[in-house]
Amino acid sequence: MDLTLKVWRQNGPNDKGRIETYPVSGVSPDMSFLEMMDMLNDQIIRDGGDPVAFDHDCREGICGMCSMFINGEAHGPNRGVTTCQLHMRSFKDGDTITIEPWRASAFPVLKDLAVDRSAFDRVIQAGGYISVNTSGETLDANAIPVPKAQADEAFNAATCIGCGACVATCKNASAMLFVSAKVSQFALLPQGQPERATRVQRMVDQMDKEGFGNCTNTGACAVECPKGIDLSNIARMNRDFLSASASEE
């Protein structure tokens, strides 16, 4: 396959940035999108240029590091996959592909396609945990049965990989899907109950402080989420947040 790539190039957070065009040829349909990017960089380096910086690590769709906005969609045209699991067989010979970074003021660009997502870490640090020490001196794991359906739902929420596709997709750059997934995981489990009210308040406060936008219920985040995190998590978080605020002294 021969392709034309239009890639966002930006030297750092303060650079204005621009689109540059690169032809690539001999792309195999079996390549992953990132392997195609490797090929581009190999070519650029051999020509003495500056390769395109992009984040990636596990390349099996679970670490959440890869983050490309491809032809106007987070992680490209396919549903339920990250960029690293997108294969070139999803494109046609002769295609022009536009590749941009996640765009959100809470995710400043570091270089080219790599952005700073540490805002997500700070939201988790604000309360995305259960306050138990790691001594191992807790109840036996089977002491509290958890109904399977509830455990499965908690698991589904917990599969969020923190990639930020939801933020990048949302026209308001809202982080509600990400935050609500963590809030829901603990809200659905008996172990999460003692801190349920304070957790949601602290996490939402931090989310606002980081400059993420508000949710206007367009649902685009859930469509683009590579892990299929459900919109109902946002509803649960809103409910919890409201009831926590109402019961405040």
Binding site: A141, A154, F155, Q185, Q191
Partner: peptide, 9 residues
């Protein structure tokens, strides 16, 4: 035991 207490599903 530890992981269940931490909310590992």
């Amino acid at each position: 035991d530890q992981c269940v207490a931490q909310g590992v599903p």
